[in-house]
Amino acid sequence: MRRLGGLEAEIMDRLWRWQRPTTVREVVDDINRVRPVAYTTVLTVANILHRKGWLRRHKVGRAWAYEPARGREEYTAGLMQDALGRSADRRATLMRFVSHISREDCAALDAALRALDQAEAPAADAGGER
């Protein structure tokens, strides 16, 4: 998965936080609080994100309202998978990663792995009965 560009990430971050359909004007006004950006630039990037499948849109009057088509968690997981896929030694990379995360994150990872094991067990049992 390709990392989002700077303005792409700024737009997506706002839409993920706001959790509602948003017009380009609202995004531009919010970004302009921090730094200047042109309406047409944000409109172009929002259209690119729409074509890439990151945003959904629908008409509100004459403007488009955009909302995320994919969540922040999906994006982050994709970046993590991509980084892991670039490693020559996946096991060593995972070990290094786990050795640097907090105990809370380690417990969350352990819980996620257990949940996956439990979800896969009934599927495997059902498949064996056929």
Rank of each mutant, 00 (worst) to 15 (best):
L94Q: 10
P122A: 08
P36Y: 12
R57Q: 15
Q19I: 15
K59V: 04
L4W: 11
R25E: 14
V28K: 15
L4S: 00
R20P: 06
D110K: 05
P21L: 13
N32L: 13
W64T: 10
E129A: 10
R57F: 15
A115I: 04
A65Q: 04
A38Q: 14
I101F: 09
L49D: 01
V24I: 14
R25Y: 14
L116W: 04
I48R: 12
E120N: 10
P36D: 12
P36E: 07
A46M: 10
W18Q: 14
R91W: 05
M80T: 10
V60W: 11
T76S: 07
R90H: 05
A9N: 10
R20Y: 13
R90C: 03
I48C: 12
A9Q: 09
N47P: 13
V24D: 00
R90W: 01
P36W: 09
H50W: 10
A115F: 13
L116E: 06
A63W: 08
Y39R: 12
G5W: 04
P68G: 13
I11F: 13
A88Q: 11
M12F: 01
L94I: 02
V28G: 15
A38R: 14
S87M: 07
G127S: 11
L79Q: 13
E73I: 07
V60S: 13
R20Q: 13
I11D: 00
M12Y: 00
Y39K: 15
A65Y: 01
A63E: 05
G128R: 06
A83C: 09
A108F: 06
R114I: 11
R51Y: 03
M95V: 07
R130N: 12
T41Q: 13
D82S: 07
A38S: 15
R33C: 15
A115H: 11
H50N: 02
A63I: 03
A9K: 07
G5K: 02
G78N: 03
A124V: 09
A124Q: 14
L7M: 08
W64I: 07
R14H: 15
T41M: 09
R33N: 15
T76R: 12
I101S: 06
H58G: 13
R130W: 09
G128H: 12
M1G: 11
D105W: 05
L84R: 10
Q19N: 15
L79W: 07
A111K: 03
D125V: 04
A115N: 14
E26L: 11
N32P: 08
A121V: 09
L109I: 01
R3Y: 02
R103M: 04
E120I: 02
A119P: 15
N32E: 09
A108D: 03
A77M: 01
E10Y: 01
K52Y: 08
C106D: 05
V27M: 05
R72L: 10
P36I: 03
F97I: 00
R96E: 07
S102Y: 00
A88R: 13
A108N: 08
D117N: 14
L15E: 00
